[in-house]
Design a protein around this nucleic acid. Sequence first.
RNA 1: GGGUUUAUAGCUCAGUUGGUUAGAGCGCUACAUUGACAUUGUAGAGGUCAGAAGUUCGAAUCUUCUUAGACCCACCA
Length: 916
Amino acid sequence: MNKELPKAYEPQQYEDAIYKRWEDSGYFTPEACPPWVDNPDSREPYSIMMPPPNVTGVLHLGHALENTLMDVMARYQRMNGKKVLLLPGTDHAAVATQARVEKNLVEAGMKNPRLELGREGLLEKIREYAEQSKTTILSQIKKMGTSADWSRLAYTFDEERSKIVNIVFKKMYDDGLIYRGYRVVNWSVKGQSTSSDDELAYIERKSKLYTFKYSESFPIPIATTRPETKLGDTAVAVHPEGRWKEYVGQEFVIENFGQAGHTLRLKIIADENVDDSFGTGALGVTTAHSPIDFEMYLKQKALGNDIGLIQVIGKDGLMTKEAGTKYEGKTVEEAREQVVDWLRAEGLLIEEQEIDQSVATSDRFGDIIESIPMTQWFVDVNKEIPGRGKSLKELMREAVTIGLDGNAKKKTIVNPERFEKSYLAWVDNLYDWCISRQIWWGHRVPVWYCQGAKNKEQGTTCQYVVTSEKLKACPECGGNIAQDEDTLDTWFSSGMWPFATLGGPEHKDFKTFFPTSWMQMGYEIVSLWMARMILFSAYLFNDIPFKDAYVHGILRDKDGRKFSKSLKNGIDPLDVIKEYGTDALRFSLMVGVAPGNDSRFYMEKVEAGRNLVNKLWNMSRFMLMTVDKEQGTMNKPVRRRGGDQVRPEAKTLADQWILKKLDTLVTGVTKNLDSFDFSYAAESLRDFTWNDLADWYLEIAKIEGGKAEVLNYILNTLLKLWHPYTPFVTEAIWQEVYGEEQLLMVAPWPTIQRSEDVIGTEEQFELMKRIVTGVRNLRSEYNIEPAKKVAVTISAGKQIELLQKNVEILKGMARLENCTIEKTIAKPDGAVGFIESEVEVFMDLSGSVDLEKEKERIQKEIALIEPYVISLEKKLANDEFVNNAPAAVVEGEKKKLEEAREKLKKLQEQLGVLTK
RNA sequence: GGGUUUAUAGCUCAGUUGGUUAGAGCGCUACAUUGACAUUGUAGAGGUCAGAAGUUCGAAUCUUCUUAGACCCACCA
């Protein structure tokens, strides 16, 4: 090394330049192949599609977590020589983005942006906002160190993706899976749009439940929380075998209900779903304003009984003309009050009761959802797909259970497994999916309505045309046409993300990378998103969108609360990066998290990450300096295949031990990453780095010397193992070692080259450690200054050879000026001691030993070990244990007992000498 | 109402298919500090693994129940 590295790692000085080097190197693209790969043409593809962040603003910590997960995986696979594609992109996020921009405009003083700007004007504003947001988001993703292929950047709303959306719509329409229908849908008055069942947020609120009769003579009491909708009731449903069954089939005429000025005709219908034992055992059927009641309407209609629909609430959220002249134009709250007043005045109100009610609200616009009947576009999830013999629902189920068509290779594995259950529960409860929205930001429904006068005259039937192409005139009659005003649900397009990003089935990327390898997502969108991706892939290609789904928990703040705008507890990842560096942030996001569980984010964790990164930096600095000093020049480590090293020969016990530990680490981390145990891998890396390497081996290296080769090898391997987690610092160090011509990013992942089994290495080294720790412990207990050197006598027994051989370690690590090792030696006068296995260690206190204190200490130890010995004896005396437990376990217990007994015996001897 | 999930050291969390005298990080206590690192080192204190019962030779780990929390789903009017 020619230049001295700074004492502390300063991320800000390296990160941007390193990212640029990576990007410039071309290795973010799957086509670039590292030189050490033997067969570049047959590399296994590995693809991850980045869940596209919404272009609604800036990234938050949740995105940082996802980026880290994906990047750890991508980097790991890339170092394994795979053809890795991590494809980045963003989502136009239809409703979310439009709602955000409209809100901004209103805050800036506009009253009604849609009205004031018009469709094109508002779209222009949203487009501007989206573009800006996109730029910010992409630069943030880069700051996170994400090794994404920017040449393939995608956007759910770009031309290529939009084209695919239209093609898929058309195909599903042709297959009869998309239909236009008049249904009761979820309507947000504030957003002036429908929303799917999955875009609702339920809130708990106090509400009143009114029990009433429609009229004096009406026999059945009815309960409702929405009296104003009763103006639109067309039937009363009872259980076919219930207490009201005698009335089934009758029709009651209620004159002037609620003084509405019109007549209600209520048919009494029978429905199995009415619970006779609940409430009044009857249900006022509001066919137009309740999805369930609407179902009854359809059911009755199919039976030839048209009970009719009366829409009393309009799209503007106000009562309609049909509600009656008294109510027309009133808000639902006003109408409710008036109906209740009237019921009360007429003596028809039987009971008022306060109840807790959960009401649906629009998760984007926040207002309470009204159920209103209208004509919309739907995906039929229950209909049999032509030629397939199954419905979309069945495909969604197969894809995660038996695999599509029972083919286990076409099965998406959900990790952790438990999320499979919630996914399936959701699939089973799925209703037809309303995909049309009345907002403007999004893919326009690719349907054109014929408006030509010509066709009317001719009596033709060309009402509308569904096509994936843009139309200018009606292809049937040549008449004028107009495209459907509505746009598509955002999930309709993001559901196609795994293949739309790859250009669709004809594209060569699709052929290489589909199905994708791995997809990660938060559990809150498993049903929303994963299900839709599976739906489309299964339907279009009879394949799964990804082989493994990794579901992670959500990130919470220090107090376990969700991050939210209203709580103002948000943390900008860029601020964290600025202060602590990207590596520290990444590490803090990965560690201490069980798969699928929520985790908390707090600065102490990032600090710990920063400290670790700094430790890594300084250890490397030390290793490089040592290598330099020992070899006299800047060392270019022995390289094979561009940086893969040969395992050096172990010269000492410590060498054997650390190399063995390193082998174990390589195996462990590899296994953990293969099974998505990100936290485990990171923690074992930290343990090795800090506890084994820094605290022991490097200290011993200072004592033993001659470590150039071993240190080279360890550093090389360790940097590779750390790289997926802390890419910047490891690359920075790598650069110091190997110069700029090589990138750690594409160095080969370490493998175990030789597992040299020196029996007992670990036990022997552990004994050394325990002796050292024991001495340090005694020093601390007897308040001997750390700097002061002490003399130690060891009665080593069988271990005499081991200890004699490694006496320098003992002397160095425990700061001994003298260390006498004998096979057996009695405790010298004026010494204190401890026992490790059969080894007794005595420390000379030069007469200043406090006999009482030493006695106390030994007694305390005996008190600790005695019950232990007894419990082991009991265990081993138990035949059932000996017979049933695995032999290895029994052996282990026997050994423990032997050692404990030995120790106890020696403690008692020592105590005996003291009390004499 | 149904389902999922959590409860382990002061705090945040691990504990990989039942076999440890129960672990980590942070915090805490004491001591240390000129050569890799105070973004540090050494040593230490701290837990009847929410509670109860059961299965087992053996339970933090499996079963049942109880308590407290979180989340998801649900048409009980």
